[in-house]
Design a binder for these strands. Structure first.
Length: 595
RNA sequence: GGUGGCAUAGCUCAGCUGGAUAGAGCACCUGCCUUCUAAGCAGGCGGUCCUAGGUUCGAAUCCUAGUGCCAUCACCA
């Protein structure tokens, strides 16, 4: 039984005994730093059933608890707050429990629990990844890891948007102006090469529009009539008809892009258990729509298009099948969701990591799946996140105003290199070891910078202002880890022996603060999972490190004057390092042995 | 116009189901490297928690209305 449960019961008993009242709920909170105490009971809610002044009630209750609960050594009452001081032996016992648990805070998948599939990344194959994709990837990966750590089996997946008019645009441009360039012949990453032709298409297309407008067309007409666009549309029809030349080109260019993406994913440290391709799924869902039509969930308009009426839910009517019988995005998403559950029958819920511009789409999608009667439809979650904007506004691939993912990763590594070399603490490291370290630190700075922000908030990214390496940052936390490793390397005794964890020591306040923060980790993991929020993990880890650094600075560890103290402090340090590593693992950030 | 999201220090952000005097980091200022890594620590400066009402013992947090920014409302994805 943990201390809070013990206290909960004791307080209920106490109030029964003193005032003869039954209390349903006791409200606890961590005692604020400015007051003495470890855990605080809020007295105000008791006033509903006990008339009297809160200080008096608090005092009586405090006296009762001090006498009846051995872990409580003293108390004080400030206004309606009863601050309880816990004994050192309680803290040491608590620490011993924590120290024994190897993956403290992280729960193995429970066999009876349904799995969760997390979708993220899901790029188009006509342009390289940019900063917006980075946020998506980091969030999706991290949330997947967090859900896993909360005790569920997780599948990571993505759906690759590998077909459609936009893909044909870059294909067409390459055909016309590519001179048979390949990634090999140009030494360019495949996704970059294809992206260049997507931009090229747009430039030429705009020229054609201007020409047509000069000839007297309206702008709208010009946009629809431009020969390039017509040609791209033809190409799409050929693709859908299975024209072998078009399909071959499509396969070739997509493969270039996949090779490029694979490199970026590797650099970013994300992975997937299963990829879905739109070219395989875009026809899915049509049968479901027919079935739904029969059941009366959908209805058909005179022109043959199929809709769902969501006006009862406060939404509009939404199309699910075009009048010519072809699928829209929604049709496909319905089909893909069902396909995924078929492929992985143990999956009981899906998480979609997609920007908040698609909030409406997912609201509708989830409603439709619910109306279709799937029992897993109640476990669908749109992990909706805010856009990453530049000071100039939105990033636009076609206009070249994007922060390229590969460039940014390289920048971060370079900055880490500059700072590290200036500090010059890496004697004895080979060049290869150094490069790995610079990458770890640079990537840590970037990932932490993005993940510490609440997903639903938008991020303003100014490329001119570099990401910090000091203060509330990834490197700050990595640094704390590295310092602890240094201590552990120097500790020439067996601190892992459980039997030698001291049980009677006078603890310093700073030791207790670290311990209290450490003990929170399991509930933080659950909270992060419930809220789909890596930011919860990031903020927790930062607080832990702040507490630890304060301890580290003011209290001797290896130089402690007493062997038992030395033992405890090394053990405490080690466990902090383990939790840092575990927490950062949930964020997809690595930690260095030295820095 | 309808719907949804966001609004906290000069800047970037925390603030869990309502609880004490609203917290960090950056920037600026002051101290601390002859003891375990100073990417650190200790301290100072800095607030109309967008506005106005309401609920209550108590509101940055919940409700209503308004303001501002963003997104969305296609036989696009």
């Amino acid at each position: 039984m943990n201390i809070q449960d013990t206290l909960d019961k004791a307080i209920k008993d106490g109030l029964q005994e003193i005032y003869n009242v039954a209390i349903e709920n006791v409200e606890f909170q961590a005692t604020r730093k400015d007051f003495e105490g470890d855990i605080t009971v809020v007295v105000f809610p008791f006033l509903r059933v006990i008339k009297g002044n809160p200080v008096e009630i608090g005092t009586k209750l405090g006296t009762y608890l001090t006498e009846s609960v051995p872990e409580i050594t003293k108390f004080n009452v400030v206004k309606g707050f009863l601050n309880l001081v816990l004994s050192d032996s309680y803290f040491l016992r608590n620490f011993k429990n924590i120290y024994q648990i190897e993956n403290f805070g992280i729960i193995d998948a429970k066999p009876n629990e349904k799995s969760v599939m997390v979708e993220y990344s899901s790029p188009n194959t006509n342009k390289p990844l940019h900063l917006g994709h980075i946020r998506n990837n980091l969030l999706g990966y991290s949330v997947a890891e967090i859900i896993k750590a909360s005790g569920k089996k997780v599948y990571k997946t993505q759906i690759i948007n590998d077909r459609g008019i936009h893909i044909c645009k870059s294909m067409l441009a390459w055909q016309k102006w590519g001179n048979s360039e390949t990634p090999e012949s140009t030494s360019k990453k495949g996704d970059k090469l294809v992206g260049d032709y997507y931009v090229k298409f747009d430039q030429e297309y705009k020229k054609e529009i201007l020409d047509l407008v000069a000839k007297g067309f309206t702008e709208d007409e010009a946009k629809k009539q431009a020969p390039l666009l017509l040609e791209a549309q033809q190409m799409l029809q050929k693709w859908e008809a299975g024209d072998s030349d078009v399909v071959d080109l499509w396969k070739t260019m997509n493969q270039w892009v996949y090779d490029g993406f694979e490199q970026t994913y590797k650099d970013l440290g994300v992975d997937f258990d299963k990829n879905y391709y739109e070219s395989n799924t875009y026809l899915l869902g049509k049968d479901i729509v027919s079935e739904g039509l029969e059941k009366g969930i959908f209805f058909k308009k005179e022109d043959g298009s199929v809709w769902i009426d969501l006006t009862d839910e406060g939404l509009d009517e939404k199309i699910v099948l075009r009048s010519d019988g072809t699928a829209v995005y929604m049709t496909q998403d319905i089909g893909t969701a069902i396909q995924r559950i078929k492929d992985y029958p143990d999956v009981g819920g899906l998480v979609y990591t997609v920007g908040n511009e698609q909030d409406y789409h997912f609201k509708v999608l989830f409603l439709i799946l619910k109306k279709l009667g799937f029992d897993w439809a109640k476990n669908l979650y749109h992990l909706s996140y805010g856009m990453v904007d530049l000071p100039s506004g939105k990033m636009k691939s076609r206009e070249g105003t994007v922060v390229d993912a590969d460039d940014l990763l390289l920048d971060m590594t370079n900055t880490a290199r500059e700072i590290s070399e200036e500090l010059g603490k890496l004697e004895g490291y080979t060049d290869g070891e150094k490069e790995i370290l610079f990458k770890t630190i640079g990537l840590g700075a970037l990932k932490y910078h993005i993940l510490k922000v609440d997903p639903k908030k938008r991020i303003l990214f100014d490329p001119k202002e570099s990401i910090d390496f000091q203060g509330n940052t990834g490197p700050f936390i990595q640094y704390a880890y590295a310092r602890i490793q240094s201590i552990l390397r120097k500790a020439d005794f067996n601190y892992d022996d459980l039997s030698i964890i001291p049980s009677n020591l006078d603890l310093e306040d700073k030791e207790k603060s670290v311990l209290k923060q450490l003990a929170l980790f399991p509930e933080i993991v659950q909270q992060a999972a419930n809220n789909y929020s890596p930011a919860v993990i990031a903020n927790y880890t930062y607080d832990l490190v702040k507490e630890y650094n304060s301890f580290y600075q003011s209290i001797p560890i290896l130089a402690a004057d007493d062997d038992k103290k030395k033992m405890f402090r090394v053990q405490l340090s080690k466990k902090v390092a383990v939790v840092i590593k575990g927490a950062f693992g949930l964020l997809g950030i690595e930690v260095p042995e030295r820095m």
